[in-house]
Amino acid sequence: MLNRTKKTFHSSILKQDYEYYVLTADEVTEEAYLLYVQDGKDYLELGEIGNAFQILMEKQPEIARKLVFVLVHPGNSMDRWNAYHHEGKDFNAYITFMTEEFLPEVELVIGRKIVRRGLLGDSLAANISLHIARMNPETWTHLLLQSAAVSPKDIVMVEQLKQVQWRVYQTVGKYEDEYVSLITNENLYILTRNRELHEMLVKKGARIVYSEQEEKHEWSFWKLDLVDALEFFLFTS
């Protein structure tokens, strides 16, 4: 059985409330593999992350019960773009909120020894995950990036980092260069940018599992990929 708790966090920095969920196994362990998930509600409802968690619990119960998911939801589509895109009005403030407000308080409440700390995101949620990680690179052990919607500017950000020790799971669809943003109507060239991001992360010392799938930019792809992504988080040290 899995436990799911819905909570609200008030950000003094952004002056708004954020809905988030904590998903754990029934049996509490002393150690925690803590995974922060952007687009949290979408991962619950569209990605069915609870089902992926249950599969892992059946396959590898001893280690899977260490998993703790903290699923953060940004709000509506415009709230999401403003928080997750580097041109959004809340972009820098959202990173500060996650780093200085949200993480410290959530981890205090969880109260377990955190031996792995990762970020999971799809599309722009993968982009903001990268930017959260670059604030304190040594804090993070794993990044799980599904079809990261990154721009040349975001890749330059990675280039400016010193060497990192991240374990990175990066997957993208072979047909994602065709995707056009519903907000800006621009072609995001997601496959091309992911290839560039992969090369840059390798240069920076990240250990990467990278794959290109016969898929488009859609939730059916990311849902099917979730078990593999989470197994990477559990078993790649």
Rank of each mutant, 00 (worst) to 15 (best):
L2P: 04
T5V: 15
K6R: 15
Q16P: 00
D17T: 06
E19D: 09
V22D: 04
T24L: 00
T24K: 14
D26F: 06
D26L: 15
T29H: 07
L35K: 01
L35Y: 03
Q38P: 08
Q38W: 03
D39F: 00
K41N: 09
L44F: 06
L44Q: 10
I49D: 11
A52N: 09
A52M: 04
Q54V: 11
I55T: 12
L56N: 08
Q60W: 07
Q60L: 07
E62S: 10
E62F: 01
I63E: 11
A64G: 05
R65W: 04
L67W: 04
V70P: 05
N76L: 08
N76G: 06
M78T: 12
M78D: 00
M78I: 12
R80S: 07
H86D: 15
H86V: 14
H86S: 15
D90L: 14
F91S: 14
A93V: 04
A93N: 13
I95E: 11
F97N: 08
F97C: 12
T99A: 10
G111I: 06
I114D: 00
I114L: 04
R116L: 05
R117H: 06
L119E: 12
D122C: 01
A126S: 13
N127M: 10
I128L: 06
A133Q: 07
M135D: 12
M135Q: 13
N136A: 13
T139F: 08
T141D: 14
H142Y: 03
H142I: 05
L143F: 04
L143Y: 00
L145K: 02
Q146F: 09
V150N: 06
K153Q: 12
I155N: 09
V156C: 07
V158S: 12
V158D: 11
E159L: 07
Q160S: 15
Q160H: 14
Q163E: 14
V164I: 15
V164R: 08
V164Y: 03
V172S: 02
G173C: 02
G173S: 05
V180C: 08
V180A: 06
T184R: 01
Y189K: 14
Y189P: 01
L191K: 12
T192I: 12
R195V: 14
R195G: 10
E196Y: 01
L197G: 11
H198S: 13
E199W: 00
L201K: 06
K203Q: 14
K203M: 08
G205C: 10
A206S: 15
I208H: 00
E215T: 00
E215P: 00
W222N: 08
K223L: 07
V227T: 13
D228A: 15
A229W: 02
E231N: 14
F232Q: 04
F233S: 10
T236P: 03
